[in-house]
């Protein structure tokens, strides 16, 4: 029972990590049709920002975590100005290469500046263990799960009810129609990029204390988040989040029940199986032709 619960918790934590990254990817893809290969590196950047704020600047975690998200929102503005705004109306190949180039720059800059040895981020909540009868859980994990749920709820409400959220959905559904009713597509592009970067920031702020922080920490995460975006139904944010949790839980299950070495193989096998039965992803709509 304990083992099962621990593995379930591991699965949910990993799922939260993938989901926070995948949500940003799905927003960028769904609204702007941008394939962002550097999105995982935003998560890595956020983790390093948190590390610097805690270990170098000496802020307490409660101040450093929100500041990380804020700084990542600023990074989103820069990302939009330097890359996205120039490639937004280009074919996906150009978007892919330019974001890939950015990812190469970020990973290698991190290697140069911090060296390949992983670093550990200390959060006071790591040492607070909550005792729930037969199971014990660290407060940081509780924070991860709570923070993830709250942020997704906020995203859902924001997209559904705010004026900007509606405009974001409008751009996603028909960019030409959005321009025709007077929605400034560039402004929506900026907002979307900032929101996506902030989610990566949140991932770093919440999850970095649980895992080791290093230049290549996000490479696999990004690939799995991509798988989640595709399996979730291209650009469907809700679908991507659900699929990310499915991947996390699948990993935990296969680690416990089958083998550690082949976990990734099982996860991709599962993704392909899902696509075999749901070619348009879990939540995608079948497209009518003609």
């Amino acid at each position: 029972m304990d083992l099962l619960f621990t593995q379930l918790l591991n699965g949910l934590t990993a799922g939260a990590e993938y989901a926070l990254v995948a949500a940003g990817l799905a927003l960028l893809f769904g609204i702007l049709q941008i394939v962002n290969f550097a999105h995982g590196e935003f998560y890595m950047l956020a983790a390093f920002i948190l590390y610097v704020l805690l270990a170098v600047v000496g802020l307490p975690y409660y101040a450093a975590a929100p500041l990380t998200v804020l700084l990542m929102a600023c990074a989103g503005v820069l990302f939009y100005a330097i890359v996205i705004s120039r490639v937004i109306s280009r074919p996906w190949q150009i978007q892919l290469i330019s974001t890939l180039a950015l990812s190469i720059v970020m990973i290698n800059l991190a290697i140069v500046l911090s060296g390949p040895t992983p670093r550990y981020v200390e959060s006071p909540l790591n040492n607070v263990i909550l005792d729930l009868g037969s199971v014990r859980i660290s407060a940081q994990r509780v924070l991860v799960l709570l923070g993830t749920i709250v942020s997704f709820a906020a995203l859902y409400l924001g997209l559904k009810y705010t004026r900007t959220g509606k405009a974001m959905r409008a751009v996603a559904q028909n960019r030409e129609a959005a321009a025709v009713v007077g929605i400034g597509v560039p402004v929506i592009g900026l907002v979307t990029t900032v929101v996506a970067a902030s989610f990566a920031g949140l991932a770093g702020a919440l999850i970095a204390p649980l895992y080791a922080v290093g230049p290549t920490m996000a490479v696999l995460v990004n690939i799995k988040a991509f798988a989640a975006v595709i399996v979730g139904g291209f650009g469907n944010v809700k679908g991507a989040i659900v699929a990310a949790f499915v991947i996390g839980l699948l990993e935990a299950a296969s680690t416990t029940l089958i083998s550690t070495e082949y976990t990734d193989a099982i996860v991709f096998g599962g993704m392909i199986l899902i696509l075999l039965f749901r070619p348009n992803g879990l939540f995608g709509k079948a497209v009518r032709v003609g």
Partner: peptide
């Protein structure tokens, strides 16, 4: 054959999965 049967996105994921699996087999 299985991945083209669906659509090109599935093909991309299928080949990505294949690459991952092949690397794991070569290593393990």
């Amino acid at each position: 054959i299985p991945s083209f049967r669906l659509n090109l996105h599935a093909f991309a994921i299928g080949t990505l999965g294949f690459a991952t699996i092949a690397h794991l087999i070569a290593t393990n």
